[in-house]
Amino acid sequence: MKVAVMGAGAVGCYYGGMLARAGHDVVLIGRSQHVEAIERDGLRLETQSFDERVGAPHLRASADASAVASAQLVLFCVKSTDTVSAGESIAPHLQADALVLTLQNGVDNADRLRTAITQEVAAAVVYVASEMAGPGHVRHNGRGELVIEPSPSSETVAHALISAGVPTEVSANVRGALWAKLILNCAYNALSAISQLPYGRLVQGVGVRDAMRDVVAECKAVAQADGVTLPPDVDAAVRRIAETMQEQYSSTAQDLARGKRSEIDHLNGFVVQRGEALGVATPANRLLHTIVKLVEDKAHGAI
């Protein structure tokens, strides 16, 4: 299979690297510093079970969106804030029969991407702990499962991913799964970012678990009001994150540590927005969203 990864950061490099390692032809489209390192030395794929370099002939890198041109599968891994603009950048180059799989935080990326491209789009829920440890170096800290929205190509893609060592499920309730992942992100991301602590240490803080319960309860109330069918084990899944990803910093924490804008508007901010529209109060989510926005604005000289 010919695969392109649009937005080859920690998530894209992990899944793209796993597919290339299994023999698929993969191009990683990302920032120039990573592209140069990968083209020179290959991608260093450091996981819990192996540490290898993956490169030619199965893996290459590019900084140009046109590199999606021959791909049958596009793993769309850009930040939620960039969904529409990145979709517009690849639209002229996509094959007519390409499947674009959104591996992103948030619940509405697939719908927003469909406004920018005409090709088939399927949402995916991502459960992976990974980080860019340096140029061309992705470190996998745990998990790695995907839940994919049904489409004519989803079963074929799922088989390829499973064969590459990526646990993958095709589910008819991806909306519920996306909301379940959103709830996990709302519980952990902002608190990890504000404290700059990994999940395992974060939950040891005074009052943290109680605060998380408040955040989760609000998210569940908004989801119910929005007609979302959540999986039955959301609360257990929230508790399990701190056990299975003890050393992981949230993507929001990583963004703030690098002085970058985060996806907080599409996480706690999205819950606040939907809560306002549906008449559901979300004070805990509003406070976390406000604090992260303050930190971002200060770092960028906006206040």
Rank of each mutant, 00 (worst) to 15 (best):
I117T: 12
T118G: 14
V121S: 10
V121R: 09
V121N: 11
A122F: 01
A122M: 09
A123R: 00
A123F: 05
A123W: 01
A124W: 04
A124F: 02
V125Y: 06
V126M: 11
A129I: 05
A129F: 10
S130T: 14
E131G: 07
M132C: 03
M132D: 00
M132W: 00
A133Q: 00
A133E: 03
G134V: 00
P135F: 03
P135M: 01
G136N: 04
G136P: 08
G136Y: 00
G136R: 00
G136M: 03
H137R: 14
H137C: 14
H137A: 12
R139K: 12
H140W: 10
H140D: 09
N141Y: 12
N141D: 07
N141S: 13
G142W: 06
R143W: 13
R143M: 14
G144P: 07
G144W: 06
E145K: 12
E145W: 11
L146C: 07
V147H: 09
V147P: 03
V147M: 09
I148H: 01
E149C: 09
E149N: 08
S151H: 01
P152A: 09
S153M: 11
S153H: 10
S154R: 02
S154F: 02
E155D: 13
V157D: 05
V157E: 06
H159T: 15
H159Q: 15
H159E: 15
L161N: 01
I162V: 15
A164Q: 00
G165A: 15
G165L: 15
G165Q: 13
G165S: 13
V166F: 06
S171L: 00
S171R: 00
A172M: 05
N173K: 04
N173G: 01
V174C: 01
V174A: 02
R175M: 09
R175G: 11
G176R: 03
G176S: 05
A177V: 06
L178P: 03
W179L: 10
W179Q: 07
A180T: 09
A180I: 10
K181A: 05
L182Y: 08
L182K: 10
I183M: 13
I183R: 13
N185V: 01
N185K: 12
N185P: 06
C186G: 09
C186R: 07
C186A: 14
A187T: 06
N189F: 00
N189M: 02
A190K: 06
A190Y: 04
S192E: 01
I194V: 12
I194R: 08
S195H: 14
Q196D: 14
Q196I: 00
Q196K: 05
L197M: 14
Y199R: 09
G200Q: 04
G200C: 04
R201G: 10
L202V: 06
L202M: 12
V203L: 07
Q204S: 11
Q204I: 05
Q204A: 13
G205H: 10
G207N: 11
G207D: 10
V208T: 15
R209F: 11
R209E: 15
D210L: 11
D210G: 10
D210N: 07
A211G: 12
